[in-house]
């Protein structure tokens, strides 16, 4: 039935789309999956751009804060430098090696925080009704949620970590074979994905447990802190926990063993040191599952 009126409404390409269309396996399914992912990324980009423009309306304040964040971020690394004023090795690792761990962990955590860290305020978004507003827009709610209050100010952290990493790469005494060279960008990418998935996955707990916002700090910021130090420092059970439990070890510990040519304190097969992409894919899948389950519970779809 057509809408009457002065300006007749067309049936644009958008109005015919169905977001939850179930497509069978095969090429069509893959193509619709890719289209959905692209649309999610674009939605994120649109919202993040709006937030960036918002903060840019207070340009001076923004510039000051970005600079301050960048400088302040180095205080974090200063702790490690201060430790090394009193010792040459920590857990058998030297300062450039710790710099490698620090840089990779900090970069992955910082990038994940920049891109999707806002998801941690899910409980608040539910309480204030912001999530409802996102759910009535024809864009993926998770993408909007991750972009909510996006702030470029957070780029200070990954930039600082990248600087430490660059210094460490220059100072390291490593024979750069092709697999080592390749592992560095791969681990940065996969590490960001793993931290991102952890952020989303634990944020989803807030669908049921609205106040549990701080819990995920254990795994995100806590994980980031842990990964700055060599695995030899920690109890074996703890290291096992971050290999087979919450797979933080794949962010940098395991690939770093290969890059830096260090023995594995757990004696795991070498394959683990190359397995970051697999771990990242698993984490993302689990986080996606948690998000769907959480959203279903929130909207009250069966049980």
């Amino acid at each position: 039935m057509a809408d009457p009126g002065l300006v007749p409404a067309p049936s644009g390409p958008g109005s015919a789309r169905t977001g939850f269309a179930r497509t069978g396996p095969g090429w069509a399914g893959v193509r619709s999956g890719v289209a959905r992912a692209r649309w999610a990324a674009r939605s994120w980009w649109l919202c993040a751009a709006m937030w960036t423009r918002s903060t840019m309306s207070y340009r001076a304040s923004f510039a000051m804060m970005l600079a301050a964040n960048l400088v302040i971020a180095f205080l974090d690394f200063a702790v490690i430098i201060l430790m090394f004023r009193h010792t040459d090795t920590l857990g058998g690792w030297n300062l450039p090696e710790l710099g490698f761990l620090y840089g990779t962990s900090g970069f992955a955590l910082g990038m994940a925080n920049l891109l999707i860290g806002s998801v941690d305020a899910l409980g608040e978004r539910i309480r204030t009704g912001t999530l409802d507003v996102m759910l009535i827009r024809p864009a993926p709610a998770l993408a909007q949620l991750c972009a909510e209050r996006f702030s470029l100010r957070r780029i200070g952290r990954p930039v600082q970590a990248a600087a430490v990493l660059a210094w460490s790469l220059a100072a390291l005494d490593v024979r750069w074979t092709w697999d080592r060279v390749l592992l560095v960008p791969v681990l940065l990418l996969c590490g960001t994905a793993i931290f991102g998935a952890i952020w989303v996955g634990f944020a989803c707990l807030q669908f049921w447990w609205g106040e549990a916002e701080e819990l995920q700090n254990s795994f995100t910021y806590g994980g980031g802190l842990m990964l700055q130090y060599p695995p030899t420092v920690f109890a074996k059970d703890l290291v096992l926990g971050v290999v087979f439990g919450v797979p933080l070890a794949f962010v940098n510990w395991l690939p770093a063993l290969r890059v830096l040519g260090r023995p594995d304190p757990l004696g795991l097969p070498t394959a683990f040191q190359y397995a970051s992409p697999v771990a990242a894919a698993l984490c993302v899948a689990v986080a996606g599952f948690a998000w769907r389950a959480g959203l279903r519970a929130y909207r009250g779809t069966g049980s």
Partner: peptide, 18 residues
Amino acid sequence: ARERVALARRIGVVFGQR
């Protein structure tokens, strides 16, 4: 409930308080 995103393109919503 099943086609929330498709529906979103066909409806407009205004909340007075938000």
